[in-house]
Amino acid sequence: MAEAKQGNRWTMVIDLDKCTACQACVIACHAENNVPTVGPEQINMGRAQHWLRIERYWQGEYPDLRARYIPVLCQQCQHAPCEPVCPVFASMHSDAENINVQVYNRCVGTRYCGNNCPYLARVFNWFDPYFPEPLNEQLNPDVTVRYRGVMEKCTFCIQRIHAGADRAALEGRPLRDGDVVPACAQVCPTDAIVLGNLADEHSRIHEFVKSKRAFALLEDLGTEPAVIYLKGGESHVS
């Protein structure tokens, strides 16, 4: 609920003017979160399992045609459409972190949340996950390997949020910028992706969010996304 603001307020800012669509974030996300690769056949069926994907679209007519792209991931809505429809609370709002979480071991696989997500950020494990050599050697022990029949989606790298909070607690100080860097932000060569905590007054996320270039995806649906895009003027790629 947007009204009850307690705990952290994780917010991601993606600067589309900086993004070069290099897809490094997509790869990093796969590696960090044990996202299985599904193979060309399944990709052709539209079953790519990316938690974060770069959507490309065209602007203008032929001679004056520009490629545009936007990284789309779970928007961590504060009024998430996926939450009320889940019959078992597998998709739920975390009051502690104020993000939307997916509980894999609770999920029964009705896929209703996937239908109801206007951003199509949710992906389903159609089969048992398969990690061909040598990917099986690099699974992240901090993240569940999902089994067949459950929904999954971007978690804002919640394992890193917990690890950051744990480190801060060990050092006896509050969370601050830099403690939590999700995999996509870590690898972004242009620093286009920034995750910050709105509850932290000193976080640099505040100045991004107040920017005149800020907008949210499908804002009119009233889902109150926690992902803010920045876009202004002409992009450097045309």
Partner: peptide
């Protein structure tokens, strides 16, 4: 045994 993927459903047609 093998998973829901044997059906033709895919993102965004989950049902």
């Amino acid at each position: 045994r093998w998973g829901m993927g044997l059906a033709g459903i895919r993102r965004p047609v989950f049902w």
